[in-house]
């Protein structure tokens, strides 16, 4: 039994130590906003926050989490960065199919947490790990800048 703090709620889960957080969140807890994309941390669709920092949940064994706080896309809107990112995402119509966007938003929120006014280099560093096959990248960059401005 592992104890996980997800979105402010404590969950007791019966899962092996090596099980990635992704599948615990999706298959056991039932929060399906966090997506499976590659399983090798190369697409970012599974991004969540661990103590506010972006982490790829598909390669994060639950044994490594301990009592750190997990935030998923379903609750990121409760943070101020989350709110402004979500709003900018909608205002700029960033999304197409939307499958990767939970991860994009989680990475973007984590970026704003570290760099409230990120430059292009910092955006590239934080966001290059998130693949979008629909090609929403130009709008993601623009929306991060809008969110940073409005969050200021």
């Amino acid at each position: 039994m592992a104890t996980l703090n997800i979105n402010g709620t404590t969950h007791q889960v019966d899962a092996p130590d090596d099980m990635p957080l992704l599948w615990v969140i999706r298959d056991i807890i039932g929060l399906t906003g966090t997506k499976f994309g590659c399983g090798i941390a190369q697409c970012g669709a599974c991004t969540v926050h661990i103590d506010g920092q972006a982490a790829r949940s598909c390669v994060l064994p639950i044994s490594a989490i301990g009592d750190k706080k997990i935030t998923t896309i379903e609750a990121v809107g409760e943070t101020s960065a989350g709110k402004s990112i979500q709003k900018a995402w909608l205002d700029l119509e960033v999304m197409q199919c939307g499958y990767c966007q939970s991860g994009q938003i989680m990475s973007a929120c984590s970026l704003l947490g570290q760099h409230p006014h990120p430059n292009d280099e910092q955006i590239d560093t934080a966001m290059a790990g998130n693949i979008c096959r629909c090609g929403t990248y130009p709008r993601i960059r623009a929306a991060i800048k809008v969110a940073a401005k409005e969050g200021a």
Binding site: I73, V76, Q86, L90, E93, M95, G98
Partner: peptide, 13 residues
């Protein structure tokens, strides 16, 4: 405005 996106920013879609 797109109708499908509000639920795509919060994981509910």
């Amino acid at each position: 405005k797109r109708l499908d996106t509000p639920d795509k920013v919060n994981g509910l879609a």
